[in-house]
Design a protein around this nucleic acid. Structure first.
Lengths: 359, 359
DNA sequence: AATGTAACAGCAACCGGTTACATTGTCAGA
DNA sequence: TCTGACAATGTAACCGGTTGCTGTTACATT
């Protein structure tokens, strides 16, 4: 006896609940109960156990505990890139909310690679994560949807709940809870602001339409034009990447070829606006005196630019927090999958990049 | 028979390896072997098993697997706030490198609360994470160190390896691997740049000295002054937060009370520099004509500011990647704890915020 | 003193995999 | 045809916890 319980490999023998039980001279069941805390144990016994735990510096093994049916709650989330100012704010919200509610947080960045996203979801199935939060747009095609559906169903089967942020729920086979901010409303409001300042020809530097974000913002732009009785000029609408360079390049091209055709620019993202601003600056065009410029997102940079950028504030952190809350509600049965579709409000932040246009 | 294996609670019966075995008409051992892939199994059998796996949409249960001795490798990392431009780059590096090496990534943000950090480390013990990476400074005191030591030893005992980024290893009881970038060298180089441009009275907007970062940068500043035979003026050295507002407030105070006492500002962080710049701008002070300004970190914002900020480039992403690599080396026994102390290089990026001073 | 009851502690059966060891099957060589 | 060697598969003992059920003890009640 004594050397009996040694693990097989070259590893050090792990410290187990049995060691604690032995030291405290109680059964493993009692140790477990003391640690769980939801079962009556005599104060004296409890103290003895706690003392042994402390002296041995013991902690439970999550895996064993999970196997026995007590899961450590875990929230996993997937996004493109933590470095983006808006996404990082969403990530922050997710992490904080999860943490505050005693959940662990798993993260995965995909750089737009949907394959990676699916692989991660699969991993989360293996891990029995309690929630998986997907942030950002999807490119949806036949093959993708099939695999997505299968994996999502698998997730559901192990008790993982899925929440989508800024992306549509894909088909009725996978009813998902979604959180979105009001893209249309924000775009409507800021376009209205430009229109009210006399602008009629507004260059629209948009994103790809696979993002619901872009669809929504463009919609708001159109609705505002319609409300002001302005016929939209489709040639003034562009689709491209959500990056600074894209904003720079597209603006430069327009300044060379289409100068004079517009008096304002609506960049679908502050990042794009930053690029546009740089291009305008480089071309000697004054903002807002010659051209007005607005963005979307209200990232920190917006108020660092000169002129400070008029833009639409988006509650990214709140987005992340809400996603976690919804996931937990789902998990705990307070709502059903597919029932909840939250839309968070946005509002215009007026700064200095829009000028009143005098005809 | 049939309803035999139902889990006790209200949950759905989980899909297990036994279901697969039954369907493929083989033993569970064979299924396990097929899935592991490192043991000879007849092609026909393998196909039968794979088919069953696919048809049932089965995935292994990580917890069961971990309990049986096969750990899913997991890298956990802790930082202040994912939203900061430098930290988010480090986080990105950690996540990417971990992901590329097939590791899962757990994240925790602390907002400077060391209690949270310790709690998370404890959790990582329970989770048997293969590596824990701590990013950013520590406030070290008797009580903290004691708890830290205990937890760190616990981590070690379950096989978790600890890597510290930008923080000193705390005592010989916990020999830790560290990664750091060259704070002293960068500060030396950029201070030299100011000195070479004729500046002699340089206001130093530093951070708290509990950060090794601050200590190193200040050291470089002093060494550069010494090399130019300039006696340092201790009243020109300030310690404060690494935030934009702190930069703004401190600069504003100096402009009111100590204007004329300095010709350049060395902000220990680009963020602080951004605040300083705003304060200068608000006070009608031209940069670099009236006052030169340099920062540190080379975050994206640095080239968005006007004038574009001269600063020190720090390879944050590389920092994160290196930390993961070191952790894996450690884990796989290619290096011993406490042996490795990597210092990454930094270099000055000259932009437009420094002017030559003519006496 | 006998009995009932509640509080506490222990036994042992799980949870879902992995893998050492045992068993079976196959085929070549004697 | 028999035997040995080796490949493929099965059996069952773990991994480290949790918890239903059972047994014990202490105390109150009559």
């Amino acid at each position: 006896m004594g050397t009996e319980r040694r693990s097989r490999g070259t590893h050090e023998a792990a410290l187990t609940i049995r060691d604690v039980a032995e030291r405290a001279e109680v059964s493993v069941a009692t140790v477990s109960r003391v640690l769980a805390g939801n079962y009556p144990v005599a104060a004296k016994t409890r103290q003895r156990v706690m003392r042994a735990v402390r002296e041995l510096n013991y902690v439970v093994n999550t895996h064993a505990r999970a196997l026995a049916g007590v899961r450590t709650e875990t929230v996993a989330f997937v996004l493109n890139d933590v470095r983006g100012p808006s996404f990082s704010a969403a990530a922050y919200g997710v992490e904080r909310e999860a943490n505050q509610r005693g959940r662990l947080c798993l993260i995965c960045t995909t750089e737009g690679d949907q394959e990676r996203e699916l692989a991660f979801m699969q991993l989360m199935r293996e891990q029995q994560a309690s929630a998986v939060i997907l942030i950002g747009g999807v490119r949806d095609d036949e093959q993708y949807r099939e695999r997505y559906t299968e994996i999502a169903q698998g997730l559901h089967a192990v008790g993982s709940r899925l929440v989508l942020c800024g992306r549509p729920s894909l088909g009725a086979d996978v009813p998902a809870t979604t959180v979105e901010y009001d893209n249309e409303g924000g775009a409507y409001a800021i376009t209205t602001n430009l229109l009210a300042n006399g602008h009629r020809r507004i260059l629209y530097l948009g994103g790809m339409l696979e993002h619901t974000t872009s669809v929504g913002r463009l919609l708001g732009y159109h609705r505002a034009l319609a409300d002001f009785g302005v016929a939209p000029d489709p040639t003034l609408i562009e689709h491209g990447e959500f990056t600074r360079v894209s904003g720079y390049e597209r603006t430069r091209a327009w300044l060379q070829q289409g100068a004079g055709r517009f008096t304002a620019i609506f960049a679908e993202t502050d990042m794009v606006a930053a690029g546009a601003l740089a291009a305008l600056e480089d071309a000697g065009v004054r903002v807002p005196d010659d051209i007005s410029l607005v963005g979307y997102d209200d990232i920190e940079l917006a108020s660092d630019l000169r002129p400070r950028l008029t833009t639409v504030h988006v509650p990214y952190e709140e987005l992340g927090r809400t996603a976690v809350r919804l996931a937990i509600d789902l998990k705990e049965g307070r709502s059903r999958e597919g029932d909840q579709h939250v839309v968070l409000g946005t509002h215009v932040v007026v700064r200095q990049s829009v000028a009143r246009l005098h005809h």
